[in-house]
Design a protein around this nucleic acid. Sequence first.
DNA 1: CTTCGACTATTAAAATTTTCATGTTGTATC
DNA 2: GATACAACATGAAAATTTTAATAGTCGAAG
Lengths: 225, 225
Amino acid sequence: MKILIVEDEIELLEAISNYLGNSNFICEKAMTLFEAEDKLISFNYDIIILDINLPDGNGIDFLKTVKEQSPETGVLIVSAKNSLEDKLKGLDLGADDYITKPFHLAELNSRINSLIRRKKFEGNNTIKFNEIEIYPDSRTVLIHDKQITLTKKEYHLLLYFITNINKVITKESIAEHLWGDDIEMASNYDFIYTHMVNLRKKIKKNGGTDYFRTMYGLGYKFTDS
Amino acid sequence: MKILIVEDEIELLEAISNYLGNSNFICEKAMTLFEAEDKLISFNYDIIILDINLPDGNGIDFLKTVKEQSPETGVLIVSAKNSLEDKLKGLDLGADDYITKPFHLAELNSRINSLIRRKKFEGNNTIKFNEIEIYPDSRTVLIHDKQITLTKKEYHLLLYFITNINKVITKESIAEHLWGDDIEMASNYDFIYTHMVNLRKKIKKNGGTDYFRTMYGLGYKFTDS
DNA sequence: CTTCGACTATTAAAATTTTCATGTTGTATC
DNA sequence: GATACAACATGAAAATTTTAATAGTCGAAG
């Protein structure tokens, strides 16, 4: 996990870097926007901690650049106490969270962890189950190292099951997970049956095993055993 | 739709209030439990956004009061803690949903909308604009008192605009509002053009006025004047 | 005032999702 | 075990959404 810290107060910068460095993060430091932009060209960061009040300009512009270049990067904005506009503007422009100075390092750490959780950066972001691999970042699915094409619903269905190995998933959960608020379907779950059929078929057609177990009256389970 | 926001972090409070105020909600603010209880005596709220960590006590007690006095009020709990106990306790006592800090305002908004839909508030859920009427409860749209049939996307598109009269809506907002996370579309917004065409066509075909103004380079505006 | 490029409109086709009709399987009950 | 009923599977049609191709429109730059 690589983090870029953009902060002009050197003591704070070092404090953050030390603190985070102790938690297995790889930290790089920048004290100016210029430096930050320079580093951004060479590397991809998972997270950027961005103070928006910098000597050579406003961090908001940098935020824009970041989000254009690598929208998957999480940005945590650091701002002085009373700049609400900046905060809103930041969130509008895609910042993932904000924190107000002064703050405890523990607080920063918890924000970062929560950000990581939200971003689902878990490890390298690969989900594997036997011959099936999913790369959520690129929305790619491999079976026996060969890429297969899934529709949106099929993909989300598979992802939901593969992150809930061995658990019984009810049709209600599926509906809530894949359709959420759009309760504009008939009161039955016909469409789930259809998508299940299609997904199973597609997996088998591409040389995969059908790990779905139908749990009569309960739902489905994705399992090996 | 009247909302009471109980939150002691003033900047977050303002941010929420502004954000929701832009969506046709009438927001009132309280920074302490005392204030909140006071306001509750005088008014009835459709929804209460309740931070449970407050300077003068725990919001859970207030939740209990609310649910005793006006059980039809929807309560959305906000908590910094990711504590399961609080969550369960809250939901046990009748809270309708739960959101953990920090969160995106868009996320909050979608929770609220989902809450509204779930609660099926009766009475104050007619949205009118001249000859167009929408009854979200039954997902019904009337033009000149005659019902018309819209697809899901068309419906959400119209609803989004009609609750944001006179405001310029960017294509980015539309995409976020109608598609959310499913950024699985090409990088362009062709599909929005298509849906706009279809919606406009359908409205005109059914005797309605095309209130959509194209704001070149900006987006669209739904307006009378 | 013209020109050019970016933005928007429109239609048609392709892909996906949902519905529908029908057949099959599992489970409880007798 | 036989039966009945609900749950599930399946294929195909219908509806919707998305893509693609083409045409029209606006506004800035010269």
